[in-house]
Computed example of a mutant assay.
Amino acid sequence: MERTSLADVAEAAGVPVGNIYYYFKTKNDLVAAAVAAQSSESTQLFQRLERLGTPTERLHGLLDVLTEVGGSVAEYGCPLGTLSAELDKRNGTTASPESQQLLVPMIDWAEQQFANLACADARQQAITLIAAYEGAALLTHSLRDPDVLRSQMHQLHLRVDELSASLAH
Rank of each mutant, 00 (worst) to 15 (best):
A132Q: 10
Q112R: 14
A136Q: 03
Y133N: 08
A120N: 07
L158R: 11
A115P: 01
Q124R: 12
Y133T: 11
A115C: 11
N116V: 04
R123T: 02
A136E: 06
M106Q: 11
R150V: 06
A118S: 12
R123W: 04
A110D: 01
Q113P: 03
L129K: 09
H154D: 09
A131R: 10
D108S: 11
V104Y: 10
I130R: 05
T140S: 02
A131K: 07
T140D: 06
A110G: 10
I127V: 14
D145Y: 01
Q124N: 06
Q152V: 03
V104G: 10
R159I: 01
Q113W: 07
L117P: 13
Q124P: 04
Q124H: 12
L158M: 13
A131N: 15
D121C: 05
L102S: 01
E134D: 12
H157S: 04
Q155G: 03
R150P: 01
M106S: 00
R123G: 02
D147Y: 13
L139N: 12
L158I: 12
P105S: 07
I107Q: 08
A110M: 09
A110C: 14
P105A: 12
H141K: 14
Y133A: 05
R159G: 02
L143N: 00
E111I: 02
D108W: 01
A136C: 02
I127Q: 10
Q152H: 03
I107C: 00
E111T: 12
Q125M: 06
D147N: 14
L117G: 01
R150C: 01
M153I: 08
M106K: 02
H141Y: 11
L139R: 15
A131F: 10
A122L: 08
Q155M: 04
P146W: 10
I130T: 05
A132E: 13
S142Y: 04
D147L: 14
L129T: 15
L103A: 15
P105V: 14
D145W: 09
H154Y: 12
H157M: 01
L143I: 05
L143A: 06
R123P: 00
C119M: 12
G135H: 06
R144Y: 00
V104L: 09
S142N: 06
L138T: 14
I127T: 15
I130N: 01
Q155I: 07
V148Y: 09
D121K: 09
Q125F: 11
L102N: 11
A110S: 15
F114H: 06
Q124S: 13
A122Y: 10
F114A: 04
D121I: 09
L129N: 14
L139D: 15
M106A: 11
F114G: 04
H154L: 13
A131M: 08
A136D: 08
L139T: 14
A137H: 04
D108C: 10
A137D: 05
L138S: 05
L149V: 04
Q113V: 10
A122M: 05
W109E: 08
R150W: 13
L156Q: 15
T128F: 13
A110Q: 08
A126Q: 00
A110H: 02
A115V: 00
R150F: 13
Y133V: 13
W109I: 03
D108H: 11
Q112H: 11
N116W: 05
A136I: 01
A126Y: 10
A132I: 03
D108G: 04
D108T: 13
R144H: 12
F114D: 03
A136L: 08
N116K: 15
M153A: 09
E134H: 12
L156G: 00
I130Y: 05
L149Q: 08
I107N: 07
Q124F: 09
P105N: 13
